[in-house]
């Protein structure tokens, strides 16, 4: 995933992935009807099944956006591939942002690679997870490995159908939102994946509206320290989520939205793969952008994370 192709004239592509039936179409319909959808947004929908995009929401080319159908398949079996054709077609019209719905059986990473197309640049891989079916599906004989790969390769996870399974938790240090989240569409449109190890300065057209910081927990801390850190965060921190091991209170499931902080005990018997916290921050201020570009240099989050690592 080289970032070296970033340039101001590349059109960013946001991938919307996730298995068949997780709610991609619903989400895209929401996007299309969202007042904040910027002019010049093109939506490429996967056209393999009998997907039902709300016709009234499809905007003509003269309008703000455009919807193009895609189908799946292998280039060796059709001497063409719909994605490259669609992207070439988009070069002919003024487009500023592309939303690409992947096939339900696509691995986001494979499509991500395909988005490094002349004139385009992948921006973020958003993957929807069906809260009501994920646990069973991720163990399925046929699609289990695929569904797990989709989650692992996501830069932003959107949990859908949480009303059917309110207790659903996905133990991953990947930023997670619910599809009920009022800020969902804005967050999604503004999301940009930045390789944390890269030192590429974001160009103006790709400036992310949100940034994430991930803290991987290496050693136990105290609940008091955790509470203190989470209560004194900068106001740019929009959300914090994760699972943390404390010496005095055991495993704690953390969920902070705005000012509201929730900590729940997590069964000690669970042996989670991922311990740590994900911080989702608005990055509108220049200060924030500067610290993002210089790799967590001086931001308050960075100092808070340093406190967590130091354990005091």
């Amino acid at each position: 995933m080289s970032n070296s192709a970033v340039s101001s004239d590349s059109i960013p592509i946001t991938l919307i992935g996730g298995y068949l039936g997780v709610g991609k179409t619903t989400l895209i319909n929401k996007l299309l009807s969202h007042p904040g959808l910027p002019p010049g947004t093109a939506v490429l929908v996967n056209d393999f099944g009998d997907i039902n995009i709300d016709e009234s929401l499809i905007r003509s080319e003269s309008d703000d956006g455009t919807v193009i159908g895609l189908s799946n398949g292998c280039i060796c079996c059709s001497i063409s591939d719909d994605l490259s054709k669609a992207l070439d077609a988009l070069r002919e019209i003024p487009v500023k942002h592309v939303i690409l719905e992947t096939s339900g059986v696509a691995e986001p990473l494979r499509v991500w690679r395909h988005c490094h197309y002349p004139g385009f640049i992948p921006k973020a891989a958003v993957v929807l997870v069906d809260a009501s079916k994920h646990a069973k599906r991720s163990q399925d004989k046929y699609v289990g490995s695929l569904v797990r790969a989709q989650v692992e390769q996501a830069h932003l996870l959107v949990l859908s159908k949480t009303d059917l399974n309110p207790g659903f938790e996905l133990n991953r240090l990947t930023p997670q939102l619910s599809n009920q989240d009022p800020d969902l569409i804005d967050t999604l449109l503004g999301w940009r994946h930045i390789d944390e190890t890269s030192e590429i300065a974001p160009s103006s057209s790709l400036q992310p509206a949100f940034r994430t910081y991930t803290w991987h927990q290496a050693q136990d801390i105290t609940q008091a320290l955790l509470t203190d850190v989470l209560s004194t965060l900068d106001e740019s921190v929009h959300r914090v989520k994760g699972l943390v091991a404390t010496g005095d209170a055991g495993l704690l499931l953390i969920n902070r939205v705005g000012d509201s902080l929730n900590m729940h005990c997590y069964p000690q018997s669970a042996q989670p793969e991922h311990l740590g916290l994900v911080f989702i921050c608005r990055s509108s201020s220049s200060h924030e952008m500067h610290s993002a570009a210089s790799g967590l240099g001086t931001s308050s989050i960075a100092s808070q994370i340093a406190r967590l690592d130091a354990g005091n």
Binding site: S10, S80, Y117, P118
Partner: peptide, 26 residues
């Protein structure tokens, strides 16, 4: 000149693969 690094095209080698192949075929 339009082909930037990082694509599935190695322009110096004249090599087009995966979606870069789609670009070439189109």
């Amino acid at each position: 000149a339009q082909i930037k690094p990082g694509l599935q095209i190695d322009i110096d080698q004249g090599h087009f693969f995966e979606v870069g192949l789609g670009f070439a075929i189109n």
